[in-house]
Design a protein around this nucleic acid. Sequence first.
RNA 1: GGGGGAUUAGCUCAGUUGGCUAGAGCGUUUGACUGGCAGUCAAGAGGUCAUCGGUUCGAUUCCGAUAUUCUCCA
Length: 873
Amino acid sequence: MKAKEIRTKFLEFFESKQHKIVPSAPLVVKNDPTLMFINAGMNQFKDIFLGHGHSESKRVADTQKCLRVSGKHNDLDEVGHDTYHHTLFEMLGNWSFGDYFKKEAIAWAWELLTEVYGLDKESLYVTVFEGDKEDGTAFDKESFDFWKAIIPEDHILNGNKKDNFWEMGDSGPCGPCSEIHIDIRTIEEKANISGRDLINQDHPEVIEIWNLVFIEFNRKANGQLETLPNKHIDTGMGFERLTMAIQGVRSNYDTDIFQPIIQTIAKETGFEYGKDKKKDIAMRVVADHIRALAFTIADGQLPSNVGAGYVIRRILRRAVRYAYSFLDKKEAFMYKVLPVLIQEMGEAFPELIKQEKLISKVIQEEENSFLNTLSTGIMRIEKIIEQLTLSGQKSLSGKDAFELYDTFGFPFDLTELILKENGFRVSKADFDKHMREQKARSKQASITETDDWVIVSEQIEGNGFVGYSLLSTEIKIVKYRKIQAKNTIAYQLVFNQTPFYAESGGQVGDTGFIQNETETINIFDTKKENNLTVHYTNQLPKNPENTFQAHVTAEKRWMTANNHTAAHLMHHALRDVLGTHVEQKGSYVDADYLRFDFAHFQKMSDEEILQVEDLVNQAIWNNAPANIQIDVDIKEAEKLGAIALFGEKYGDKVRVVQFADSIELCGGTHVEATGQIGLFKIIHESAIAAGIRRVEAITGEKAIAYYNTQANELDQIKGLLKGQKELSKGVQNLLDENKKLHKQIDELNQLKAAGIKAELLTKALKINGVNIITSTVDLDANNIKNLVFALLRDAKHTLVALGGKSDDKVTLTVALSKDLIDEKGLDAGKIIRSVSKEIQGGGGGQAHFATAGGKNPNGLEKAYQLIKEQMNK
RNA sequence: GGGGGAUUAGCUCAGUUGGCUAGAGCGUUUGACUGGCAGUCAAGAGGUCAUCGGUUCGAUUCCGAUAUUCUCCA
């Protein structure tokens, strides 16, 4: 059975059990501070489990793309070395929200595996939770009994809290789980050792394929468990593992999910897969990572040096490193593997096809940039080796190796390899020590403590977000909690309803205050945590159970709306001017300006920028009214031609924002009619990544202020140029003149210097066969320098000591012709140090040229005297 | 969010106890050689040493802040 078929059968099976099939959520997680990427099938249903949202369907199934790069079940470092760890994988899952429970979940899992997929019953084992004394949880007899009805008892094992009690995090919904394991070893191996003894023993061929989680508890921050009113089913089956079992191969990488990719890598690198252990590992690494990269970039996450983007960059660099070291690939090549991946996966994940060009460009660019990092690192290492050789050392300190890694991004294993090739050592333990210190530092800096929610009043009626139409309304506080980070304490408040817009879709959160007769509480930010709107304040109300009037800062909201609507108009204009390949890749909108990132492969020309500005301003002057529809069926919205974003999760019902021809799915706040925006001006256009441009713009008052400043500047220049008509010509004239004058000054200075030179030569004294010229001249330090070098150019046995005065400071320059240094061992630096105290200063320099500065011009004569005396000896 | 680097000619980079008229290679301009292309040789142009402050007689160099950027950790 082909992988594609396996995926389809799963979905069809649960559809036949009255499940609604939903699309995979985008990989990149927004609105959840605890998670960067989707790492389990249940992530997109977290709100439902937490009780913050509800599902329209009580039964749901899907295949979810997941990314795991750290954590107990997967470490990036392991991927490729074995046959079953992945960064990106698909999780097949079925869910019940307060509907069916253990009985059905178990029965259907068994039916699907054995009857639809035809897996051998004898090779399947299941585990059930044995209970835990500390938590006061009992043996999961219910599950045990359901299983006993369908499989022999010797295929049922008990599991402890670690393996069979599933938790979302330190707190939150949790419950016992029952895992299904499969033994894919050969008959001989099975006869030798029973599969039963290898369950959960990290055997690569006796593995868990499906986890059925029975969510029935909530763990509080203090560790205690409470029973949930609604019980849920949450299951997850690793698609790659399942495919391996069904296709009868021994490794995930041998399935038809990975083989086409691996074969392409083999072709690109010129090595065969399966011949050399190290090369195989490298090929698996590349095959795995290219999948992760393609999916995350398709979902809008670009490699960067912070947060989620950094994780992507690290994955890419790991792949490049393996290819570089083991597959002899010293140039970018991964982007060439991409077409095969897209051919295989594009049908199930159409975003890959849509974004192919961008993904390819980004990957290629990143590969090249890291290869560049590597080559500068290699230069650095070569330098280090040279130094080690010179000083006769045999090993590099872990600290230096860490510096290479930490500061220059050069991987430790390459450092170690190159040193070894040259006969040097480096201490891994020492390196690790520095790594631990760095981690501890970061952790210390980002420590946050979150207390339990304090419930103020459980059941209050409210209308959620009312801020589209109201900037002020009566609210009650539902709950609050304290959060503590480093030195700051803040409180999060949740209301029954709120006029405050929570940061999302690139638009900043509202600020304002809540107030009643007795107190006023400032709200400095509003954010979303999953579906919850959280208001941030530094101060807790004394009587939180009272009713408050909530007020949003209107001016800020107003200006933000200007910018948000302008961003829509600009998006539309960009597509008109540049083409429909322009796709939003990110945006930021606040009261001050708007920022819009989009896919486009070259710099915008000045004309294009002007055209976009014109189109937006015309749309503003047309004063198009807002046409905002809520609860539009997503299919309906698509028919209208509304622009949706990749990597954004939309429900079935969406909000459609329309201004004339600009139609977008958007939850943000907008102007009532475009005329309110007043004026639009692009102030910046730049590249932020391969194939991504950024445009920054301002509107309304800010745009007017911008033009005023420019006009002011112009007026001032006009004034300075005394009313010349063509300003640029006037400035050009000035520049030309300036250049000419500079040249004249240079010439005059040279003449002056020549005059002084001639005069000085007549003053030369001969002492002990040395021509000594001492004088105080009216030149600055730089010109004295020129003069001195001119004097010495063809002079022999000559010492020059020249003083110069400027303001209350004085300089002294001593220079020698080269023969004096060679023959008499004189040193201008030493001479100047010995006399500089006479001018109350200090100085130094080289043997042939030295300068000093001081405060006492009257000391110059004494200094000359001393120099002459020195020559007399 | 925290740590460590970097910013010098159009490009890639050197520049150590603070004073070497701030250099190299590539590119560019001009000239010579060659029938032309290409090339070789020679000469020249090109720098507020990121910005702003401080220490110092003197800062590209030391210190601080800002901006940009790279890199590691979270």
